[in-house]
Amino acid sequence: MAKSFEGVAHEPEDGHRRSARGARSAGGGDGVATLLVGPVLLVVAAVIVFAMPRAEVPSSPTPLVRTELLTDAPLRTPLGDPPRTFIAGFERRCNECHSIIEPGDSRDELLQHQDIKLAHGLNDDCYNCHARDDREKLVLRDGSMVGYAQSVHLCAQCHGRMYRDWTRGAHGKTLGSWDRSNPAFRRLTCVQCHDPHAPMMPPLEPMPGPKTLRMGEPAPADHSKLSKRRNPLLMWSIDGAEKEGGDH
């Protein structure tokens, strides 16, 4: 561009002709053009005001959820110590009946407590846990009896690792505070989550899935569709299960 400076002094022939053309061109048909500038811009203004579509944002509301499900209350309220139960609408201590009734055999058909469906794996005998002679107590393997509040020790006899994990906080649920020294710290016991007669956690209805902004239709559940290659890792999951479980 120092070059172009010199170019001013010795402008080539061609450049002269061109610059002349450039200057002349300013005088040509621009009369009409300048006249049109204002109206054109006014038309644009009108188009913007009247014809421009408003930018829309699609709505993607969080589906309504039942707030009562969002609770920190334990899943179950276990029997107290001493345990009480409702018979014909009246609250009764267990032994009010059981002190009169002769203890039956575990294999017998139940006449009372028919709501109890025992599904505790190998543990299929009432007297494994309930004391035969004092129904307000539980019985340990060594024959000693503990109150219902100590049910943890009963469970711990078989579920040693779970018990160990529970004492360390790796299993179970801790509420109130993460700090052991905090008075609000409380650890739920086994039976506050698990039904001792059927300890498997019952399946739950899941709450609504994500529906985020402009998400579109969700991805297909079967990810094997996304790649044609057969994945040996997924041999036992996608292929078999998805087809059966998918139509829930």
């Binding site: 300013a26 048909g29 621009d30 009409v32 053009a33 054109v40 811009l41 644009v44 913007i48």
Partner: peptide, 21 residues
């Protein structure tokens, strides 16, 4: 400028304004 210049500039101005909007 000449009319081509005007047409070009007005065209660009209009597009810019749509963008601004």
């Amino acid at each position: 400028g000449d009319w081509k210049y005007y047409a070009w500039m007005v065209f660009l101005t209009c597009i810019s304004l749509f963008g601004l909007n």
